[in-house]
Computed example of a mutant assay.
Amino acid sequence: MPASPAVRPSDPAEAEALHRLVLQSLDDDQAVETVSIPLAGKTSIADHMVIASGRSTRQVASMAQKLSEKIKAECGRIPRIEGLPAADWVLIDAGDVIVHLFRPEVRSFYNLERMWAFGDAPDATVVPSAGQA
């Protein structure tokens, strides 16, 4: 059975380009507290996990839809999306990059950053937004 476009293996340059696209899209859409966690060498599910918040369910849904469209247009991948109807926590699986978008209350409840830090939190990178830079 052929691999779907969302999960096809790619080279490191493609993974990094996808990661930059995700971070730029979230910055453009004014995501809050964006964190990028490198997963390469720790798990085979992806090379990067990006976690960010939106101020409302409407913003979370909008960021997820725009990001999905950009990934499809620029990378030729069709990301899998879960949680869009409620938009409290939306998961976008783009293969090499997994994105979690939350409302702040839901994010603090699940605390994925701590779960995926593997005891070496210095690997996680808080990505400054344009407004913070």
Rank of each mutant, 00 (worst) to 15 (best):
R55I: 12
A31N: 07
D120G: 00
S10L: 07
V35C: 02
G95Y: 01
I98S: 08
G54D: 09
S25V: 06
V50W: 00
A124D: 01
E113C: 05
P122D: 04
D93M: 02
Q24V: 02
A3E: 10
Q30N: 13
A3R: 08
E16G: 02
S108H: 04
L84I: 12
R107G: 05
A17G: 08
L26K: 11
A46I: 10
P38Y: 14
R20K: 11
S62I: 01
A15K: 13
S108T: 12
D96Y: 04
E74Q: 15
G41N: 13
I92G: 10
V127L: 02
D27V: 02
E105S: 14
W89I: 06
S129L: 03
N111V: 03
M63Y: 05
V35P: 06
C75H: 15
A13D: 13
D93A: 02
G76I: 05
A133Y: 09
P12A: 13
P12R: 13
G41Q: 12
Q59L: 10
A117N: 15
M1Y: 01
M115F: 07
D47R: 15
N111G: 00
L26Y: 09
I51M: 04
R80T: 11
A73Y: 06
A87N: 11
S25Q: 07
D93W: 05
E105H: 11
E113Y: 08
S62C: 08
I78M: 07
P79Q: 11
A73I: 06
P79A: 07
D28N: 07
A130K: 15
D11N: 15
S4L: 10
